[in-house]
C-alpha cells in the first residue's frame, strides 16, 4: 500500500510541475506583469481542469489494472513497454517494422488524398444539388441512401474494383467523408438570401462570377461545417480500412500489435490517433474561421 501512496504523489505532482513555472514567471516581468498574469490565469483556468481529470483517470486506471492477472496493462506498464516507440518514432527497419511517425504519416497521406478528392467532388456536387431543383430531386434520395452505408462495407467492393489496397483505402476515405460535404454545401447554397441573388442579377454577374463572388462566400460557413464533419469521418474510417488492407499505416500497426499481443502498443497508438484526430478537426475549424471571417450575418 505504501508503494501506491508514493505513486499517487508522483502522478499528481507531474501536472502541477508543468503549471507552476507559468505562474511563477509572471511577476518577474514588471512592465507587462499584469497582462502576463491575466494570460497565465486564463491559461490555467483552461488547462488545469482537464489535467486534473486526466491525472485522476490515470490513477484509477493504474489502480484497476495493476492487480495481477489484469487483462489490460496499467499506465506505468504501458509507458515502460512502449518507451522505445515513444522515444524513437523515426526508425525504419524495412517492411512494416517502422517507427510510429511513418505509420501515422502513411495514414495521414491516405486521408489527405481521399479527403481532398471528397472536398472537391463534395463541394461540386453540393453546388449542383443546391442550385438545381432537378439535380436535387434526382440525386438527393440517392445520397440519403448511400450515406448510411458504413465505410467498411465499401472496402470489399473497392478492392474488387481497384485490385490494390492503396486506392481502395483512399476510396473508402472519399466515400465516407463526401456525404456531409455534399449535404452541407447544398443546404448552404439553398440558403443564399434572395437579396444576394438580386444584387448579382442587377449587376449582371455571369454564372462563373456568381459562383466565385456570391455563392462560395455566402455558403462558406455551411461548407466548412461539412468539411469539418468530413475530416472527422475520414480519420474514423482510415484506421478500420488499414486494419484490413495491411501495409504501413496506423490502422495496421494496431492490428499487428493485437496479433502479437502488444497491448501497450495498441494503447499508445490510440493515444496518437486521438490526438491527431483532434488536431485535424481544429485545423479545419481554424481554417473555416479564417476564411469565413466577416461572413457572419450582420
Amino acid at each position: 500500500m505504501s508503494m501506491t501512496a508514493t505513486k499517487i504523489e508522483v502522478e499528481t505532482a507531474k501536472p502541477a510541475a508543468t503549471i507552476a513555472p507559468v505562474v511563477a514567471l509572471t511577476p518577474k516581468r514588471p512592465p507587462r506583469a499584469e497582462a502576463y498574469a491575466r494570460m497565465a490565469r486564463e491559461t490555467a483556468v483552461r488547462v488545469i481542469p482537464p489535467l486534473v481529470v486526466i491525472a485522476l483517470l490515470t490513477l484509477v486506471w493504474e489502480l484497476v489494472c495493476r492487480r495481477a492477472g489484469s487483462a489490460l496493462p496499467p499506465p506505468s506498464k504501458v509507458f515502460t513497454d512502449t518507451k522505445e516507440l515513444i522515444l524513437d518514432p523515426f526508425f525504419d527497419n524495412g517492411g512494416i517494422d517502422k517507427g510510429l511517425f511513418w505509420h501515422l504519416s502513411a495514414s495521414l497521406q491516405r486521408v489527405a488524398f481521399g479527403y481532398s478528392l471528397s472536398a472537391i467532388a463534395g463541394i461540386g456536387l453540393g453546388v449542383l444539388v443546391g442550385q438545381s431543383v432537378w439535380a436535387m430531386r434526382g440525386l438527393d434520395p440517392l445520397f440519403q441512401v448511400l450515406r448510411t452505408i458504413p465505410p467498411l462495407a465499401w472496402l470489399p467492393l473497392s478492392l474488387a474494383a481497384f485490385r490494390d489496397g492503396q486506392p481502395s483505402a483512399i476510396f473508402v476515405i472519399f466515400i465516407t467523408s463526401i456525404w456531409p460535404i455534399i449535404i452541407n454545401t447544398a443546404v448552404g447554397i439553398r440558403n443564399i438570401p434572395q437579396d444576394y441573388r438580386n444584387v448579382a442579377a442587377v449587376v449582371q454577374l455571369n454564372p462563373l462570377e456568381f459562383f466565385a463572388k456570391i455563392m462560395i462566400p455566402a455558403a462558406a460557413p455551411y461548407i466548412f461545417t461539412g468539411l469539418r464533419i468530413g475530416i472527422g469521418l475520414s480519420w474514423l474510417a482510415i484506421v478500420a480500412a488499414e486494419m484490413l488492407i495491411g501495409g504501413v499505416g496506423i490502422g495496421f500497426f494496431i492490428w499487428d500489435a493485437w496479433n502479437s499481443s502488444h497491448i501497450s502498443e495498441i494503447i499508445l497508438a490510440l493515444f496518437y490517433v486521438g490526438i491527431i484526430g483532434f488536431v485535424l478537426d481544429r485545423l479545419i475549424a481554424g481554417l473555416g474561421k479564417f476564411v469565413t471571417h466577416g461572413t457572419a450575418q450582420n
Binding site: N198, V199, V202, P217, A220
Partner: peptide, 12 residues
C-alpha cells in the same frame, strides 16, 4: 439599379 429595402450589402 436598385437600392434594396434591407441594403443587401454582401457581408464578406
Amino acid at each position: 439599379a436598385v437600392v434594396f429595402q434591407n441594403h443587401s450589402l454582401l457581408p464578406w
